[in-house]
Design a binder for these strands. Sequence first.
DNA 1: CTGAAAGCGCTTACAG
DNA 2: CTGAAAGCGCTTACAG
Lengths: 357, 357
Amino acid sequence: MINSDPMSETKTRIKDIAALASVSVGTVDRVLHNRGEVAQKTREKVLKIVKETEYSPNVMAQALKLKKKFSFASLLPESNENNPFWIKHPAGMQKAIRELEPFPISLHHITFDIFSEADFQAKTKKILSDKPDGVLLAPIFKAESILFCRKLKEANIPFVFVDGFIDETDFLSYTGENIFQSGRVAGQLTDIVTPEKGDILLVNIARNLQNIHHLNSRTQGFLNYFETSGRNSGKKIMLNISDPSLSSVFKSLEKTFSKHNNICSVFMTGSKSHLIASYLHGKKIRNVNVVGYDLLDMNVAFLKSGIIKFLIGQKPEEQTFRGIKKLFEYLSLNKTPGKIEYLPVDIVTSENVDFFL
Amino acid sequence: MINSDPMSETKTRIKDIAALASVSVGTVDRVLHNRGEVAQKTREKVLKIVKETEYSPNVMAQALKLKKKFSFASLLPESNENNPFWIKHPAGMQKAIRELEPFPISLHHITFDIFSEADFQAKTKKILSDKPDGVLLAPIFKAESILFCRKLKEANIPFVFVDGFIDETDFLSYTGENIFQSGRVAGQLTDIVTPEKGDILLVNIARNLQNIHHLNSRTQGFLNYFETSGRNSGKKIMLNISDPSLSSVFKSLEKTFSKHNNICSVFMTGSKSHLIASYLHGKKIRNVNVVGYDLLDMNVAFLKSGIIKFLIGQKPEEQTFRGIKKLFEYLSLNKTPGKIEYLPVDIVTSENVDFFL
DNA sequence: CTGAAAGCGCTTACAG
DNA sequence: CTGAAAGCGCTTACAG
C-alpha cells in the first residue's frame, strides 16, 4: 500500500498544534512564519511540537486563503529565421503555467536579440524594474548575465537557468544539457557512421566564438570521445565560420571540401546542420554523414531524407517547463530543487524523430 | 504576458453566479453537480450563466472541502531475477503520488506471476472486490484482461494501460511504447552497425509466444524496416527460445552460431540481451553487435563494455507515473487524457545511458 | 424546490 | 505578547 501520507492516517493541523501547546492558532501561525511578537518560551514549545508531529501545511488551504499571484519573467533570445532554435521554448513555459492552473501565475516573456549584448542588458533592466517573483533565463552573454544575476540576488529574486549555466552566480537551478557529455555522444554517433580511416569535419558557426561556451564544450566533448574511446583514426578538421549566411557557409564548405578529399562525416556543433546537408545535397555529395543538433524543421527534413544521420535533441520545451515549475515550487511549496538537472541527451534518427515533435 | 487565467482578471465564483441568477449558492451547486431538486427554469437560468461566465471550479477549495481520498489499484507482473524488467514500475507510481501530495491518494499495488494466467485472474478478483476508484494495469494476458476490463467497466471504474493495450476494451488511456515503430528503430540501429552483407539473428525468448504480442509486433517492425528502408541485405535468421534458462539459451545460441557463420548482429526482441552478450563474451566472439531492450543492470553493464551497441529504453517509470496522473486528473479534474500516448523510443548507448538511470 | 449556515485548514487584521 | 473572529471558494446537512 503506497500512501501519500505514510506516517499517520490524519494530518496534524495548526489547530492540533495549538491545542497541544495550549495556545491559539494565531500564535502557532506567527511562529511558523517567523512573524515575531511571540514569547521565546512559547515559540520553543510550539516549534518542538511542530517537529514532533512533523507538521506540514495544507497547501490547498494556504493557496485558497492567500490567493497569491506569482509573476514570473523569462529572458530568452528571440527566435527568427536565422535562429529558429528558440521557437519552442515559450511553449514549455505555457505548459507549466497551464499545469499549475489552480494557482494563479503570470509570466512576462521577454526576448532579446541574440547578437546584441546591449539589448540583453536593456531587457534585464526592464525585468529588474518589474520586480517579478522569479526569473528564468538563458545566460547567453556571460559578463552581462553575471551582472544581472547579482542584481537579482540583491533584490532577493530567485532565478533559474536553461540552456547553460554560469557557475559564478547564485542560481536556484539549471535544467538542460550536459554539454560536454552531449559532445561525447555526438562523437560516438559520428564514430559509428564513419569508416575507420575517414576524416571528420567539425563545423562551428558563430559570430563570436568565445562568448558561446556551448560550442566549445561540445567540441571538447566530441574530441575527447575520440581520444578516449573512439575507433576512427581519421583527421579531425576544424572549421569556424563567423558569418552565418548561406553563401558564406557554402563558400567555406566549398573551400574545405576541395582541400580535404577524405571527409566522410561532418559534425555540426550547433543547430544549423541543415546548412551542411543542403550543401551536400546541392553538390550531390553522397556518403558523407552529418551529425548535428536540434529538431528544427529543416534539420528534421534532412534527417528523414537520410543526409543527416543523427540529431541530438535538447528538449527545449522541457527545459523551460521544468524551470518554471521549479520556480513555482520553490516559492510556494518551499521545495528547493536540485541545483543541476541534466536532461537526457536524446539520440534522434529518422525512425524515432516523430515521437519528439 | 502568459496568464493562467487568460480570459478575465478575476475568476467567477459560485457566489457570482448565484447573484447573477438571483438564487443561492446552494442552488447553483445543485445544478452544477446534477443533484436534482431544482426547478427546470432555475436550472436553465443557472446553466446559461455558467456557460456565459465560463465558470470553472476552484480546485483548491473543492479539495479542501471534499477531502476525497482516491484509492487506486495497480496490477503488474511481479519482478524477480528472471524478470527484472518490472522492478522500476512501482517507483513511477510512487513518484506520481508524491507529486500529487496535497491530494490524498492511496495505491494498492498488486503483482501477479507473469507465467500464470490463473494468478492474474485471482488478482483481478481481489481488485474488483476492493472497489478502487481507478486501476492501472499491464494487460499481459489478453483473454483474461478483456474479461477483467469488462468487469471494471460495469463497476464504472476507469482503468489505464501501461506496457501494451487491448483495443477491444474501453480503457481510459494507454501510456507506453509504439511497439511496431520501436521494432523499426531497432532495425535501423542494427542496420547501422551491421556490414551490408552480414547476417542478422533475431532472438525471441518467451514461453508462450502468441500471448505476448509485444515481441511479435517488435519483430514485425524490425523486419518491416529492412523491407522498406534497410541497407543490409544479409539473411534474417529467426530463433525462438521457449525455455529462458541460461543453459537453454546458450545451447540454442551454440547451435545457431555453428549453423550460420556470417552472423554479424543479434537483435533481442525482449529485455534479456545480456544473455546474448554473456554468451558472446564467454565464447570470445568479437565483432558481433547486439541490439536489445531495456536498461536492466546487466544490460547496461554489457552496453558499457561495448558488446551491446544499442539499447532501446521503454521508460517503465514514466509509463506508470503518467498512468496514475491520468487517473487522478480524470477523476478529480474531469480531464480526459488522450487515448494513446506513445512515449519516445529512447535510443541508448554507452555514452548517454547514465542520463536514463 | 430553495436558502442560510457551518466548516474544510489556513492567514490576517484587530482588540486587548 | 496573545486570542477570537472573519473569510478564501466550495459542499452539504438541515430547515422550511
